[in-house]
Design a protein around this nucleic acid. Structure first.
Length: 290
DNA sequence: CTTTTCTCCTGTATGC
DNA sequence: TGCATACAGGAGAAAA
């Protein structure tokens, strides 16, 4: 997290607050935030200076700002929020939050845009934007369920080809993008499928049901402004969403399943945790090593 | 080639 | 009170 709904909330904020403005100065502190940028932090800041922001875009959990460079070239500032990244707008006279790793002022003298990231898994990259409109750092992930380019049959086929737990497939951004640990658990609960079931052993209609559940739950979360456990997951003005109160399994270990009353269980999954209803979501028989 | 594990990071909660 | 440890987890590299 932040996952697709939270990233989309941020994208909408950028569209409202940053698009059609021109960057006057750019500051990027430290190498880590620019570690994916070939030229490093100084090059990143230099190339942002004077750019006009032409649009705010998203695929899955990746965001990018379309940019018109002073020389007329089309670039994209690709942003991944990682675990704790935030894009916040704030007046230039207001103190920047702790863990602000980059900030941009605009020629109109209005609010700055700040990239704040406590756990530093987030990253910024500036790349040329090709004619297909998808920046190179985003090209390796699959479309998310809200894009016109999304094809459910393709996503089902990819899941059907995997010999791994279906939850691992949902989390693989090359299968379908935008889903993280929270919405994977929520989608599997809604579809009444246990995440440890081997993807290839599930029927195509079942896999389609899981994907549709993921889309439905993420749409509901977006309508609620996203999920916010604390101040880390907020929109560009720092406001929290309220989907947390609608979560059915994530973070609800020991609490009754809203469908059947059985206590929700939490269990280890790939060095993470999964949450499920032991009655609604039947676990696969443990594979016995021999 | 596919799948799993490891690693990056900091604030908060928990246990002794 | 102080210190060690666990946990949160996206995604790419490394290992299996």
């Amino acid at each position: 997290m932040p996952e697709l709904p939270e990233v989309e909330v941020v994208r909408r904020g950028l569209a409202a607050h940053v698009v059609d403005r021109t960057i006057a100065t750019a500051t990027v502190t430290g190498a880590r935030v620019a570690r994916r940028h070939p030229g490093g932090p100084v090059d990143l800041a230099d190339r942002l200076t004077g750019c006009r922001v032409t649009g705010a875009h998203r695929r899955g959990k990746y965001l990018w700002l379309g940019l018109q460079a002073p020389d007329g070239g089309a670039d994209a500032l690709v942003v991944h929020l990682g675990m704790s990244g935030q894009l916040l707008v704030g007046g230039p006279d207001l103190p920047r939050p702790r863990h602000t790793h980059a900030w941009f002022s605009f020629a109109d003298g209005g609010d700055e845009l700040r990239f704040v990231d406590q756990r530093t898994f987030g990253a910024l990259v500036l790349v040329p934007l090709g004619p297909d409109g998808i920046p190179e750092p985003v090209a390796h992930i699959a479309p998310d369920p809200f894009e016109a380019a999304y094809d459910e049959r393709v996503a089902v086929a990819r899941l059907k080809a995997r010999h791994s737990p279906v939850k691992a497939g949902l989390l693989d951004q090359g299968v379908v993008s935008g889903i993280g640990n929270i919405y994977a658990d929520e989608a599997l609960w809604a579809a009444q499928v246990h995440g440890d079931r081997i993807s290839a052993t599930l029927t195509r209609p079942t896999l389609a049901r899981v994907l549709q559940a993921a889309r439905t739950v993420m749409a509901a979360a977006l309508a609620a402004g996203g999920t916010s456990f604390d101040e880390l997951y907020v929109d560009v003005e720092g406001a929290s969403g309220y989907f947390e109160r609608s979560l059915q399994v994530y973070g609800r270990a020991g609490l009754p399943c809203s469908r059947c009353g059985t206590p929700i269980v939490r269990h280890a999954f790939a060095n993470r945790s999964s949450h499920s209803c032991p009655r609604c979501q039947v676990a696969p028989r443990a594979r016995v090593p021999r």
